[in-house]
Design a binder for these strands. Structure first.
Lengths: 236, 236
DNA sequence: CAGTGGTCTAGACCACCGA
DNA sequence: CGGTGGTCTAGACCACTGG
């Protein structure tokens, strides 16, 4: 009873987590039912429900309708990987963000790009290439293709003032995104623009965004492997 | 009104998401208050609260106590990065998992390792090195240090039968974990064990797990950059 | 001050599960 | 069948925000 001021459902959550952490309840063991918790803590069922439901969302317990609640088998080591606008990310570290625009142009989709955007080969696409600097140090090279249907004036945007990510989010409501992170060796141009030495590896995030019916954008974000890492934390 | 059978709170969530996705409500715009939704949908306040609260958890809207709810500024492109036992991950792809144990031993902590584990320099640690294969192809090299306090019999485990991750999860309830993902060039030993060519880059995940009062384990997981990527998806 | 979200209650009906 | 979780209601008190 360390905190009587905590909300009741938080106290119930803390109690359950404590039983799991100190080993009293092993994975697969049953967790008290909502009505049992209701009686034990002198709370209403809605409050007990909220506590257990949130633990289920966090992956700590597993609920089966009609059957009961059990401690989750493997405590998931999971974490929310935030993919954010590089501008905001740098500002949050209280650093200065600058950008150098290398290329903004209209291009024709090759077969691979056409497939990504669900357009025909040769369809018109916008293409931008730029380098982002944090405190003057190159930290990301952004090579992006954009569907003209969602941002017809993309070529006129001033990307020293706003980022493509921000521009797109403001002009095309985001409905879906997928990404992958890989390690690769950069191309000669990427090596030069990021100020890398020969053979130095990079983290590459490829990100595809969807806005309503359209595939909005495909971005290839190249980070110097030695100056950048994706990280996260998870707490039970 | 496509689905009258959907739970009421899901209908409210769908309504709000639709307004955002079709551009009627822009980032920063106010979302109707709980009492307004209550009246509009003919539901109780608890139900309206649940709908908006879940959207807040998903990052679609932002709530400020006493002030109100607004559409989130930047729709977070976020995704749960699952960090899982490599054995389960491979089985889920319906592939065969095998492992080759290279080294299992007790070592003395150097200064850096001691700091990670919050032990004194020279303290006894367990150390294991192994390679995981998917369908016979090397896919991860795992170099792991383990705190003897949480797994005193670690050296006796048969890691061709179980993975260190699984062994630790079963012997030490997990309370906290942090990780980072970087791109690096592998060491000569890693290059050899993973069957890489010279200069081929790798994804390295460094993962630290905590169990109760102890730092349980520090793992360095090396993946061939060309054969592996971390990926995820996000849907509004 | 009135309006907001945060929390909570004491009921309720339902679909589902296992015995 | 009884117990479970999933959902919902119609109230309530509180702390906080803004004008």
């Amino acid at each position: 009873m360390p905190n009587t001021s905590l909300p009741a459902y938080e106290q119930v959550k803390a109690f359950i987590k404590a039983q799991i952490n100190n080993g009293s309840w092993r994975p697969g063991d049953a967790v008290p039912s909502e009505s049992a918790l209701q009686a034990q803590f002198g709370i209403s069922r809605m409050t007990a429900n909220r506590a257990v439901k949130e633990l289920a969302v966090e992956g700590v317990v597993k609920r089966v309708k009609g059957s009961g609640t059990v401690v989750a088998q493997l405590h998931r080591i999971s974490s929310t990987l935030q993919i954010r606008d590089i501008h905001e990310e740098i500002l949050e570290r209280e650093h200065a963000h600058t950008a150098r625009v290398i290329r903004v142009e209209a291009v024709r989709a090759d077969a691979a790009m056409a497939q990504v955007f669900k357009l025909r080969t040769g369809a018109r696409l916008f293409h931008s290439v730029m380098v982002h600097f944090e405190e003057g140090v190159p930290i990301q090279m952004e090579d992006r293709h954009v569907n003209p249907a969602v941002a017809p004036n993309y070529l006129e945007a001033d990307f020293t003032e706003t980022t493509p990510t921000r521009y797109l989010l403001e002009h095309a409501p985001l409905t879906e995104a997928s990404y992958s992170i890989e390690a690769t060796l950069p191309s000669p141009e990427e090596t030069r623009c990021l100020g890398l030495k020969r053979g130095e590896p990079c983290l590459v995030m490829t990100r595809r965004t969807v806005s309503g019916p359209h595939v909005a954008s495909l971005a290839r974000l190249v980070y110097p492997g030695i100056r950048y890492s994706f990280g996260g934390k998870f707490q039970l």
